[in-house]
Design a protein around this nucleic acid. Structure first.
Lengths: 107, 107
DNA sequence: ACAACATTTGAACGACTGTTCATATATCAT
DNA sequence: ATGATATATGAACAGTCGTTCAAATGTTGT
């Protein structure tokens, strides 16, 4: 399968996924949920933002199935739902810290 | 290194990189350059867009060092400059064809 | 029932972004 | 030099997006 054969829809879907990771606040939310589930309040406190703002972003991330939600009592916990995004984020984050190692490896 | 330790700058840089991949036109350009170098005209023809539009996008991709450029004669050829982005795109594209046709409904 | 807490939602505003058009620059051929 | 081709740049417009505020909804207590 060659990359040129990507349908327009596919590229658009991909772009939308990247778009959800393209905002610092939203990206911070996803990163905060990478290794453990987090309540809305936890995330808001951790990022120093309002629960309203976080909730708006969580809505987008959930409807794109990047995060999944689970209510327990008064709180709603969010966790990673997309293994692919998780893997991609891990790669990007690690690359941020080695910064200079440029070989193309296959997983 | 824990993900929570990511500095604000790092998250912003990451978000900016994702932002460059978040536009369908720009993403198509990067994908077109994944496996081979491409001239501006080639890309424009392939995407059915004006050379002006492509050039505007290429400027962003080049200044973020996602693509690199090389002039040969009248044409300027662009190619991948970031192995990390290349790897990430490959993962995402492959994932799109394995899981891309599912329609799950979960909350 | 009520109050307190946690999360969600809708509207509105300012800021950002992709595209188009016109124009400029660069390179090669005559 | 001129013209033709290829790419780049700047301004301007329309549409999108993130944030804030106020209000609503859901949940667990008393």
């Amino acid at each position: 399968m060659l990359n040129q054969d990507l349908q327009r829809d596919h590229t658009t879907v991909l772009a939308e996924t990247f778009g959800l990771l393209a905002d610092p606040t939203r990206l911070s939310i996803v990163i905060a949920c990478m290794d453990q589930e987090r309540s809305v309040g936890e995330i808001a406190a951790h990022l120093g933002s309002s629960a309203s703002l976080i909730s708006h972003h969580l809505r987008l991330l959930r409807s794109a199935r990047i995060l999944k939600s689970e209510r327990r009592g008064k709180q709603v916990f969010y966790a990673m739902a997309d293994a692919c995004v998780h893997k991609v984020l891990k790669i990007m984050i690690e690359h941020l810290f080695v910064h200079g190692h440029e070989d193309t490896n296959e997983t």
